[in-house]
Amino acid sequence: MKRTLRALMGLLGGASVACAGGVTRSETVGQLPGDFVASAILEDAGGAPLLFGHDGGASTAPKERRAAIWRVDAGAVTRALAAEPGWFVAAARRGAQIWGVRASRGADQDGSRYTVVVSENGGQDWEARGEIPSESVTALSVAGDGWGWAGGVADLFRTTDGGRTWSPVAVPGSRGVQKPNFAAPEPGVVLVGGPTLRRSEDGGETWVTLSEDEVLATDGAWVAGSYGQGVRLGRIEGDAVAWRGELEEALLPDALTSDGDAVFVRAAPTGEDVGRYVALIVSVDGGETLGWEKLRGPSSTGTVGLGDGRIWRLTQDRSLKRLTLGE
């Protein structure tokens, strides 16, 4: 698979993006506590990785977990936020705005509660904001100017005041059995994937269907969807998705980031390889050709973070590695 990716990148010959040869180097940048369980890895405003999740180990009951955000910078591993009861289920960043959704569950509580914590200065200081009145939250997107979206299985919620108050938004159609996936590229605009791809440009009042085909991950500019038993990439052009290249591999896209013509997709294997690894799909030519690579280590997608031209990988022994993409 690495050969495939490298051959692809070699064919392109000196693509300007830094991902041109697949993963060519793995460097340990920090050692997290052994009982840390990651749910999301982002970068702060300076490019240092922030790891959201919980302390206490995977076997710890939800009501006994301690929500944690760890920062790794120049080899130093420090708490970005003091540990509190609960666990982080999702995180997102736009510029210096970094938001996280912290779940918590009391001993006598029926269901989890979801509170948004926000940093306005790139992850230095944090403030707990409002509670999302949902039974399920698994995803979050920050749009800027106080706008943000959060959602789980059943509902999509919107905030326009920096996470202090949240309102439910009705999305037409079935949500399907796939993980909720949505992106908010700018204030008032949200795209919701699933069995179809829909977009609202008025804060969720009205919706346009951009694709009748399944979309499993999007960042608002690009989409990744299933195609037969494989994967395909598409670019959002106006009110439609222009499907580009395909990859005949049994992979299930889970997250997507893009930078111009370069697209990075985190995916999990399906079929016979299900649960064995996390995959990285890369295209640097506007989605025409796709290469992919197995990322060895834990198969939980929460242990892989897509940064700005960097890939972060938390290993089984909780060392954080920076995977370099290049020739």
Binding site: S59, P62, R105, E135, V177, G275, R276, S299
Partner: peptide
């Protein structure tokens, strides 16, 4: 723990064979 943390999502995941296997193996 996964069920207790988010029962609705657990119910959804049970209906997605590959995703449930991936979660469990992970």
């Amino acid at each position: 723990n996964r069920r207790e943390a988010d029962e609705r999502d657990f119910d959804r995941m049970e209906k997605n064979n590959d995703e449930f296997r991936a979660f469990a193996f992970a």
